[in-house]
């Protein structure tokens, strides 16, 4: 009686918890079930075929077991029993598995990549993403923590890491690819639907692994070309107290801002930080308050981050720097 009560008490939280977990799959922002790229669509299709196949086989097997248990002894002769085992136990599984293999293998072929395709180098760092666009015949463009790609064109991601193993995953675009120090892994993709999506590090890489994410913006090709041309230019030069403070606190030792003499390469490039959708690689929104908080105590937001805290910095100084950064569009 007691155990039944415990069970019925547990049922509600279990059911609602499972329901919530299932509902979280409904977001179209970061979901392999809401593909916006050819590869993710192929993976989704393959998953559906495999799941349906597995369910059909499981039901058929259950029915066969039921028949085997229920039917009276002697329903089959020795020979027909052996034949049944050979057909259902050997030939049918071999044919089914071969069918699924031959069906799934062509979908694993990577996109052919031409020399004229856009290459994007992404380096995983604890706990952010160094991004370098290498358009064919053009100067590379440095960015961080956000990736924009043109719809309908093949893009080749060249993935590596600088410290530990990370993994690059944009669930709606393609499968996962590990980022390994000292090695470049290639991931060709093709987006099919414009929109704003999300990617996430999927190999545990340290304290702030869960805070290592990035926005992915899939754009129409013409808009992408315009954006890339604009991204190559520095943000409008702004002079003010914030800019001077940025220099005097030594922020440029780690961060670069195009068009200024701040050229550090240890941390993310901040040339167009205000045009991104988040700071700290998906940790906080781009607001003045969030910038102030991140500047003064980044490790409170991202434990294990290499950016030092600035407890000695006054709120006023932090606000001025945040205002300056907020203008870097």
């Amino acid at each position: 009686m007691g155990s039944r009560n415990t069970l019925s008490h547990l049922a509600k939280p279990i059911v609602s918890g499972a329901g919530l977990a299932l509902l979280s799959g409904c977001n179209r922002h970061q979901s392999a079930l809401a593909p916006f790229g050819e590869d993710a669509a192929a993976i989704e299709h393959l998953t559906i075929v495999m799941v349906v196949g597995a369910v059909v086989i499981a039901i058929a097997l259950a029915l066969l077991m039921r028949w085997a248990v229920k039917s009276p002894e002697g329903s089959l002769t020795l020979i027909s029993g052996e034949r049944l085992i050979v057909i259902l136990g050997a030939i049918l599984p071999a044919v089914l598995l071969l069918g699924l293999l031959v069906y799934s293998l062509p979908q694993m072929r990577p996109h052919p990549v031409e020399a004229a395709d856009l290459k994007i180098d992404v380096t995983g760092e604890q706990f952010w993403w160094r991004v370098r666009y290498a358009p064919p015949g053009g100067e590379p463009v440095i960015s961080a923590n956000a990736i924009r790609i043109p719809v309908g064109r093949t893009v080749l991601f060249r993935l590596t890491a600088s410290d530990v193993v990370h993994s690059f995953w944009i669930p709606g675009l393609a499968g996962k690819m590990d980022m390994i120090p000292g090695r470049v892994n290639e991931l060709p993709v093709k987006a099919t639907k414009p929109g704003v999506y999300r990617g996430q590090c999927t190999e545990f890489c340290g304290l702030s692994h869960a805070w290592m994410a990035f926005e992915v913006v899939a754009m129409e090709p013409a808009a992408f070309d315009r954006w890339l041309a604009a991204e190559r230019r520095p943000a409008k030069p702004i002079d003010g107290r914030g800019r001077a403070l940025f220099a005097s606190y030594g922020c440029g030792g780690c961060h670069a801002i195009g068009g200024t003499d701040q050229s550090g390469t240890v941390g993310p490039d901040l040339t167009h930080i205000a045009a991104r959708r988040s700071i700290g690689a998906g940790a906080l929104p781009v607001t003045q308050d969030a910038l102030v908080r991140f500047i003064r105590a980044s490790s409170e937001v991202k434990p294990g981050s290499r950016m030092p805290a600035f407890p000695q910095m006054s709120e006023g100084d932090a606000r001025d720097i945040a205002r300056y950064l907020g203008e870097l569009r």
Partner: peptide, 15 residues
């Protein structure tokens, strides 16, 4: 069957 299953990826993936 094993030989066919081994050969299929080599011949279909072509990469």
């Amino acid at each position: 069957i094993g030989v066919i299953f081994t050969a299929a990826p080599v011949l279909i993936l072509e990469d």
